Amino acid sequence: MSETRAPRQTVVLFGHDEAETALLAAYRSGRIPHAWLIGGPKGIGKATLAYRMARFVLAHPDPATPAVQGAASLAVDESDAAARRIATGSHGGLLVLERSANDKGVLRTVITVDETRETIAFFGSTAGTEGWRVCIVDTVDELNANAANALLKILEEPPERSLFLLVSHSPARVLPTIQSRCRRLPLRPLSVADVRRAVAASAGLDLDDPELAAAAEVAEGSAGRALMLIGGEALGLTQRTRAALEVLPRLDYRALHVLGDALGGTDRAALAAFMDAIERWVSERLQVSDPNEQLPRLARLSEVWEKISRAARDAESYNLERKPLVFSAFSMLSEAMR
C-alpha cells in the first residue's frame, strides 16, 4: 500500500454530492454564510470536503466568474497553483487549526487557546492576492474551553471575505453559541462502494483488493476506519476486541490476555483499532429504544468510556504498555454493565 494522502492533498471526494452542491450553490450566490459546521462520524470525508471547498474558493476568489457560475462541482485540478500550495501547507490565505505537538514531540490532546488566537492575527491582516481568508478547524471538538471562546469572538464579528469551515465528529456537543453562528452541513456515512473507492484513491489500492473489500464491509461507512484496518493486525484486533465485548459483563480472561498481547507495546494503529471498537460498542449501547429504563446503566457506561479514553490518551502520550489498559477497560465495562 502506498502512502495515504492527507485531506489537504486529496482532490477527489466520494459520496457527498449533496453537501458539495450546497457549498457550491452558496458560494455561487455571492452571499455565502461565513461559517459552516461540517458534522458526521469519523473518517467519512469531512476534512476532505473542507479542504475541497477552501481549494475552490482560493482558486476562484470571484464567485461571479464563469468558472464558478458554470462549475458542476468543487473540483480543482491538483496542478492549480492554489491546490499545490494548500497541499504543501504554504497557502497564505488558509489557516488550519488542529492539534499540534508539544515541546517533547507528543501530539497534544486539545487545540490550545494560543493556537486559536492565531486566527485573530490571520483575519486581522490584509487579504492577499487571493482576496479570501479561509480557516479550517479540524476538529472543533478538540478545542479546549478557552480556545472555543476565542474562536467564538471571531465568529461573532467575522471579517469581510472570511470563511470558517469547522469539522466536528459530534456537532450536537459543540457549544450552542458556536452552533448558532454556523450553517450546519451534516454528512452521512458512506456506502460500502464509496468506502472502497475512497480508500483505493487515497491509498493507491486496487478496487478489487480482497483486504480492502473486507475492511469496507466492517467499516460502517467510514473510509478512515477502513484505512486503519488495512494492513498489519488491525482488522483481526478489531474482531478480537468485538468478540470480547460481546460476552460482557462476563470477562473472558484468556481472550483478554491474547488481546493484550496483540495490542503490543507502542503501536498507535493497534491502539486506535482497539479504542475504535470499544467506542462503537459503547455508542450502540447508548442508543437504546427506551433510555428511561436503563438510565443508571447508561450513565455508568458513559462515565466509564470517558475514563477509558483518558487512560488510552495517557498510554499513547507516555508510551505505556497496553495490556494493563485492556484489563482495566474491560473490568470497568463489565462493572458498568451489571
Rank of each mutant, 00 (worst) to 15 (best):
M1L: 11
E3D: 15
E3I: 14
E3A: 15
T4Y: 05
A6D: 07
Q9W: 04
Q9T: 04
F14T: 10
E18F: 01
E20V: 07
A26H: 03
A26C: 05
R28M: 10
S29A: 13
G30K: 14
H34M: 09
G40H: 01
G43F: 03
L49K: 12
M53L: 14
H60Y: 09
A64N: 14
A67T: 14
A75C: 08
V76A: 05
V76E: 05
A81P: 15
A83D: 06
A83G: 05
I86Y: 04
I86K: 07
A87M: 13
A87D: 12
T88L: 12
A101C: 04
D103E: 15
E115L: 05
R117T: 01
E118D: 11
A121N: 14
T126D: 06
G131M: 11
W132P: 10
R133N: 14
V137L: 08
E142N: 00
A145Y: 02
N146Y: 03
A147K: 01
L151W: 02
L151Y: 00
I154P: 00
L155N: 02
L163T: 05
F164R: 03
V167L: 06
H169R: 15
H169F: 06
A172I: 05
A172S: 15
A172Y: 05
A172F: 04
R173S: 15
V174H: 03
L187A: 11
P189R: 11
A193Y: 02
A193L: 12
D194R: 08
R197H: 11
A201P: 01
D208E: 15
D209F: 02
P210V: 09
E220V: 10
A223C: 13
R225Y: 02
R225E: 09
A226F: 00
G232M: 07
A234Q: 13
L235F: 04
L237D: 06
T238Y: 08
Q239A: 15
R240C: 00
E246F: 03
V247A: 02
L248I: 10
L248F: 06
Y253V: 11
Y253I: 09
R254M: 10
A255I: 06
L259F: 03
G260H: 06
D261S: 13
D261E: 15
D261Y: 01
L263A: 05
L263Q: 04
G264Q: 07
G264N: 09
T266F: 00
D267K: 02
F274G: 10
A277I: 04
S283A: 15
S283G: 15
S283V: 08
S289L: 12
D290A: 14
L298I: 05
L301C: 06
R310P: 01
E316N: 12
Y318W: 13
Y318D: 08
Y318V: 05
L320C: 04
R322Y: 03
K323I: 02
V326M: 10
M337Q: 13
M337D: 12
